[in-house]
């Protein structure tokens, strides 16, 4: 018998001026989710796959983080959610994008994996599948919080920044003045306007099975139809026999770096240990100053995280009694 471990995140890249009250709220939710998962692993003997789904559902249902209810808004003021789940044992996976009415995208992703002939469904086809499967659906308004309406307005006011961000990267990336002048930029937005992108959970159960799940509302003020890293196997989410990983941060940087797969790949191909692999990936695989964070567990019950942002909402617990809830470094 192996040792179980669990880690959760609620996004990386946090406004240093985030009111204490909101920090406390976030910590409470993280603690509740870690405990939910830990007790399922300890007492109910649920599989890693069941536990990551359970925990991410909880994170989606609570409006504190950007997924499910509380998702950030597209440029049109709508919600488009996406999620993916992966079972390390057989590397089976399910992914969904462009959901506007499904209450728990992560559970639909699991249904795609188990009940459809495919692994990844998006937009109206995914909504149609959701209706067929009879999952709980809500009006789009349910997902929209007042906070996010306000955030979208601010993001639109800062719009020029969003679109100037990637385009002139040539010439700028070697210019340290930019970094110094904008110490709290993320995804081209001032941190005060930026909402962390994602929630996620990784678990290894007593039998050494690893699983990962990630869910998000995406990037604030995103173009309609934009897909980020969360539903992409190998980028936002990955699990195999060795480990499970869930990422968060600047989606485009995570995609280019195939961040989640690379944690597993350096363990597999370079024999790095979990925390070494996480450190390596955060240091070496985020190009052009890309900002991201990730959580990971290995099949022998280790838990690890890493981020190069100014914070990541995170929590973890292991069978030997270790627990941690954190926001800053």
């Amino acid at each position: 018998m192996g040792r179980w471990a669990i880690a959760v995140h609620g996004g990386a890249g946090i406004d240093p001026k985030l009111p204490l009250e909101r920090q406390e709220k976030a910590k409470h939710l993280l603690a509740r989710c870690v405990n939910l998962g830990a007790s399922a692993l300890r007492t109910n003997n649920l599989s890693a796959l069941d536990v990551v789904e359970l925990v991410v559902r909880e994170l989606e249902t609570d409006p504190v983080f950007n997924s499910g209810q509380g998702s950030v808004l597209t440029e049109k003021g709508t919600v488009e959610m996406e999620a993916s789940i992966m079972d390390g044992l057989k590397r089976r996976f399910g992914a969904v994008s462009g959901l506007s009415t499904v209450k728990n995208p992560i559970s639909l992703a699991r249904l795609v994996m188990e009940k459809s002939p495919h692994s990844y469904l998006a937009f109206s086809g995914a909504e149609e599948f959701a209706r067929q499967q009879g999952v709980e659906m809500m009006e789009n308004e349910y997902f929209i919080t007042q906070d996010n309406v306000g955030m979208l307005k601010q993001a639109k006011e800062a719009n020029a920044i969003l679109f100037d961000y990637r385009i002139p990267t040539t010439g700028l990336e070697n210019c340290c003045a930019v970094e110094a002048d904008n110490p709290t930029m993320m995804n081209g937005l001032p941190m005060s306007v930026y909402a962390p992108e994602t929630v996620g959970c990784v678990v290894v159960d007593k039998e050494g099975r690893c699983a990962a799940a990630t869910s998000t509302g995406g990037l604030i003020n995103k173009m309609v139809g934009r897909i980020g890293d969360s539903p992409i196997i190998g980028s936002g989410t990955y699990a195999c026999k060795l480990c499970a990983i869930s990422c968060t941060g600047e989606g485009e940087a995570i995609l280019r770096g195939t961040l989640a797969r690379d944690v597993a790949a350096v363990m597999e191909y370079k024999d790095l240990r979990l925390q070494e692999a996480v450190n390596f990936v955060i240091k070496e695989r985020l190009d052009d100053g890309g900002k991201a964070g990730l959580i990971a567990v290995s099949n022998n019950g280790e838990v690890a995280y890493g981020f190069n942002t100014n914070g990541m909402f995170r929590g973890s617990a292991t069978e030997d009694g270790f627990t941690e809830i954190g926001i800053w470094e």
Binding site: G98, F123, R166, M223, V224, R226, I227, E252, L255
Partner: peptide, 15 residues
């Protein structure tokens, strides 16, 4: 031309 990497369905058609 955009800050995104991946666009799909109606959003991609609109683009």
């Amino acid at each position: 031309k955009t800050p995104h990497i991946y666009l799909a369905f109606e959003g991609a058609e609109a683009f």
